[in-house]
Design a protein around this nucleic acid. Structure first.
Lengths: 251, 251
DNA sequence: ACCACAGTATGGTCTGACCATATTTCTCCA
DNA sequence: TGGAGAAATATGGTCAGACCATACTGTGGT
């Protein structure tokens, strides 16, 4: 009943994207491969160069294509994979539109960070990047500098989890929160507490203690953003299991 | 030292985006507000309409603008906020480029789902959407249909967490995994196990038992994607804390 | 009051041109 | 013969101007 679909107007550049995507799948294109030039692509697809260019802008925005001018083997459209930059742009714009709150972003960061730190602790990751970032943080004087190496520390944790997607999310979240991170450091006045948290996190990962690492991260975030994160644990475990059954009616 | 920076060539459409972004911040533009028409914007910024259009394609890709043709109050560029669609495109393309593995995506989904379900359990969320999705799943016959309502169930959990960012992530992850979800259902042959998991999740949320809900979700995902998810818990808690100290040297 | 039709502003597309850049190829001189 | 400089060329970046389909707006006639 009522199988009406809104008429889907497909614009030319969307068709171009679809065909490029199909080529990626069918021809097994990989990062590092190249796409035909804009003029050649326009001629082959029988569309204008403008439409091809709009398609390229979209693919570039999504972090899968990079364009180089000039001539030679290095010129033209190159297939890349930089999801983090695209995610950063996305978060920054939606934060600016006030359609995502700082609390939501910080909560998401806490989620990813706890997950990363747990995995890093279990996987026995390489901690040299963490140690290096800690040393650099000790040597900083301004809040901006501190935040820079602080970001490196937390991103290194994400990388230690071995998951490129969550790492990209972590990178972009940090990028979006950079402003607030600097403010947080300036508000705290001194970084002793934050550094103590960092060493506790580092210690827990080295010890392979996932639970302690997660707990340390949570305390750390709560210190940096007081009043933002809500504790997700249940205080009451009295089971009032009510309406779970009765799934026999059909809508 | 060596403070050489690669020359940053800024293209016209990037400048257009920057100015639009600045206007959003300065003028406090919100979702629902409108941007000037392409021609007017081009004239005001002293650039060609093509450059304005490329900027609009980028903003559209990032889910912050929607363009309507025609005339009247509903025509032109409208400020929106649809991060989920942008995230879906992003994940789909990077999965296609094989620069993100299925394992990474499934792991990320497990992370978000456990987080969502824990929060939903604690917040005492509205469970009517979950119940409705369960009933509809019971009435399905094909794997595609089942996955559709299964997605609704899991997205409803994400919405119950009250975080729009993690909900957007959940939506886009599900969207990217739709193909594999259908395959998983067909591989299992029957949906009894999955439905039992669903009811267990529903029950745990209703009871406010975050730990049980998280555990149920993990078992559920492991059933659907066997061999993908790695358990993040540490089997051994013997503290072999070795190299955590010695952070006195500066690089 | 209502309806049909012309007017008009919108985004979508195309064409063709020119520019800046970077490589490749050619040419000419030492 | 070798090499340096000049010319050719292919790339993306930008622009101007045109035309189309669409969808509202206003106007005039019934």
């Amino acid at each position: 009943m009522s199988g009406w679909q809104p008429v889907r107007r497909t614009r030319t550049f969307e068709e171009v994207i679809a065909q490029i995507e199909r080529r990626i799948a069918d021809d097994g294109l990989r990062v590092g491969d190249r796409l035909p030039g804009e003029r050649q692509l326009a001629e082959q697809l029988r569309v204008s160069r403008s439409s091809v260019r709009e398609a390229m802008r979209v693919l570039e925005t999504l972090g899968v294509v990079s364009s180089q001018v000039g001539r030679g083997p290095d010129a033209g459209a190159l297939l890349i994979s930089r999801p983090a930059e695209a995610l950063s742009d996305l978060l920054r714009l939606h934060l600016g539109l006030a359609n995502l709150s700082l609390e939501e972003v910080v909560d998401a960061r806490l989620m990813i960070e706890k997950w990363s730190v747990s995995h890093a602790a279990v996987h026995g990751a390489d901690l040299s990047a963490l140690t290096a970032a800690l040393e650099r943080m000790d040597a900083t004087t301004t809040a901006e500098e501190f935040v820079e190496h602080d970001t490196a520390f937390h991103v290194a944790i994400a990388e230690a989890s071995g998951n490129r997607l969550t790492t990209a999310m972590m990178l972009s979240l940090r990028d979006s929160l950079r402003r607030y991170a600097v403010e947080a450091v300036e508000r705290l006045g001194d970084t002793a507490g934050l550094m103590a948290d960092h060493r506790r996190i580092h210690r827990a990962i080295a010890a392979g203690d996932a639970a302690e690492a997660a707990s340390a991260v949570e305390d750390h975030l709560r210190r940096a953003y007081p009043g933002i994160s809500r504790p997700p644990r249940a205080e009451n475990d009295e089971g009032l299991e009510g309406q779970q059954g009765r799934s026999d009616r059909v809508g």
